[in-house]
Simulated scan of single mutants.
Amino acid sequence: MAVLTLNNVSKTYLLENRQVSALTNINLTVDSGQFVTFVGRSGCGKTTLLRIIAGLEQKTCGQITFQPTEAKIGLVFQEPRLMPWLTVENNMAFALQQEPDREYVKATVDHYLKLLRLEDFRHAYPSEISGGMAQRTALGRALCYNPDIILMDEPLGALDAFTRATLQKELTQIFQEAHKTILFVTHDVDEAVLLGERIVVMGGGQICNELAVPLTYPRIAASKEFYNIRSQVLAAIMEEP
Rank of each mutant, 00 (worst) to 15 (best):
T172I: 02
T166L: 11
H111G: 00
K11Q: 08
M92G: 08
A134V: 01
T166Q: 13
Q176C: 12
G33K: 05
M152I: 11
Q19H: 11
L115R: 11
L194H: 10
Y145F: 15
A235P: 09
Q19W: 00
I220N: 15
Y125C: 00
Q176E: 14
R122E: 03
R198W: 11
V88D: 00
V3D: 02
Q58A: 10
A95M: 03
C44Q: 01
L234F: 10
A71G: 09
D110F: 00
C44A: 15
M133Q: 13
L156R: 06
N7I: 09
A71S: 10
F38L: 12
Q135G: 03
A221T: 15
K114A: 12
E240Q: 14
C208S: 14
S231Q: 15
K59H: 01
Y125H: 10
S223P: 04
R141E: 02
K46R: 00
S21K: 13
L75V: 08
P147K: 04
I73P: 04
R102T: 13
V185D: 01
T216K: 15
G74R: 08
E225W: 06
N91P: 03
G55N: 05
C44Y: 06
P126M: 00
V213T: 07
A93L: 03
G157T: 06
M92T: 04
P218T: 08
V39D: 01
T181L: 08
L56H: 09
G140W: 02
N8Y: 11
P100L: 01
P155G: 11
P155R: 08
D120R: 12
P155M: 11
R198F: 09
D160V: 07
T216L: 14
R164T: 10
L156W: 09
I174G: 04
T69V: 13
F77H: 07
R136F: 13
D153S: 12
T69E: 14
V36G: 07
R41D: 00
E16T: 08
T47Y: 07
K169G: 12
S127H: 15
M152W: 11
S21H: 10
Q173F: 14
L96R: 04
I150W: 08
L167F: 12
P147C: 04
M152N: 12
K11R: 13
T163A: 04
Q67L: 05
L86I: 06
Q78A: 02
R102N: 07
F121R: 01
T87R: 10
V105L: 01
L151V: 06
E128R: 14
A95H: 06
N7Q: 15
E89C: 05
L195D: 07
L50C: 02
D188I: 03
F66P: 02
E89S: 13
S42C: 03
K106P: 07
T29S: 15
C61N: 15
Y227N: 06
A138N: 11
E210V: 15
K180N: 07
L23D: 12
I52Q: 08
A95K: 01
L86W: 07
D101G: 08
A93T: 02
L4E: 10
I52N: 09
G131K: 01
N146E: 15
K180S: 05
L159D: 08
R51H: 11
H179D: 13
L139H: 05
W85R: 03
L167H: 03
F226R: 05
N27T: 03
L151T: 04
N90Y: 10
G196D: 10
T166K: 09
I220L: 14
G131N: 04
L115Q: 12
N91V: 04
P126E: 00
A95N: 04
L4Q: 10
N25Q: 13
F77I: 00
